[in-house]
């Protein structure tokens, strides 16, 4: 296959889902065997503008939860993984990080639901965020363990011999050097929270309707057009983050 043809076909395959979702989100009345919906309208999108609508509330709630999770996890796992990486028991610590990461989140949630119900945390945004931390935080730690290597440790010591105190070491060297890793961690943990379905449903007991849950609900209601619209909304923040990553992470380290 020629290189040109390969690129074209692959691009079409990659872009097709976005095109299908975009068309459906604008559609109405899609009877078999028509290939395209009979009516195109912005009505579905207009719902978003209503502050009171379910969809815009879900969007706001999802953004809030995911931004808080990604920020908290990025900060905490940056430091945690430093201590783990330079610990003599590094491997054992990492085992603890891998378990929640591999365990099916929905089964973990089923096993933990009892505690959340007993403590009165189920069905609250705080409870859902805490539960999401259980899977996002170990993952963040795993992301940073590749970052904290011997070289960086030497660089940290070098700053000390040049007269830098702990605060200066972080603000002037470690954090700027970690910029790429911090962005990647933020991106990945944001996605974990943003995409999370099973655990959020079980711990949120139906009261915490994130956007991912909303897509599921529309699909179950056979509301294809709203499901497509919610799907597009789900894809927007990750695409923005991807663009930021491409722009700020990859360029600097070439």
């Amino acid at each position: 296959m020629s290189k040109y043809l390969f690129k074209i076909i692959l691009s079409i395959i990659i872009l097709l889902p976005f095109a299908v979702l975009a068309v459906l989100s604008l559609g109405r009345n899609w009877a078999f065997p028509a290939v395209l919906p009979a009516v195109f309208t912005f009505d579905n999108w207009r719902v978003l503008l209503l502050a009171q609508s379910d969809l815009s509330q879900s969007l706001a709630l999802s953004l809030f939860i995911s931004i808080v999770i990604a920020t908290a996890v990025t900060i905490a796992s940056f430091f945690t993984s430093k201590f783990i990486s330079f610990s003599p028991w590094r491997r054992r610590w990492l085992l603890i990080a891998y378990f929640p990461y591999m365990f099916a989140p929905v089964i973990l949630a089923a096993c933990l639901q009892y505690y959340f119900l007993r403590l009165g945390w189920a069905g609250s945004a705080g409870g859902v965020m805490l539960a999401q931390l259980f899977i996002a935080y170990p993952f963040g730690v795993i992301i940073f363990t590749g970052f904290w290597n011997e070289r960086l440790h030497n660089m940290e010591q070098l700053v000390a011999t040049l007269g830098g105190n702990a605060w200066q070491t972080y603000t002037r060297v470690l954090l700027p050097v970690a910029k790429g890793a911090l962005l990647i961690c933020f991106f990945q943990t944001f996605l974990i929270s943003w995409f999370e379905y099973g655990l959020t449903r079980l711990i949120g007991v139906g009261k915490i309707q994130t956007l991912t849950l909303k897509v599921f609900q529309y699909v179950n209601e056979a509301n294809v057009f709203y499901a497509a619209l919610a799907s597009i909304l789900l894809a927007v923040p990750p695409i923005v983050l991807l663009w930021l990553n491409k722009r700020y992470v990859f360029v600097n380290f070439n």
Binding site: K3, I14, Y197, A228, L242
Partner: peptide
Amino acid sequence: AFRSGYLSFLIYLPLTLPATVIGFYSF
């Protein structure tokens, strides 16, 4: 093709869709 040019960006795009959405699309 995946190291430079537009495919090096496009190939990341599917990762921006959660399982729920790709499942809905497959359906």
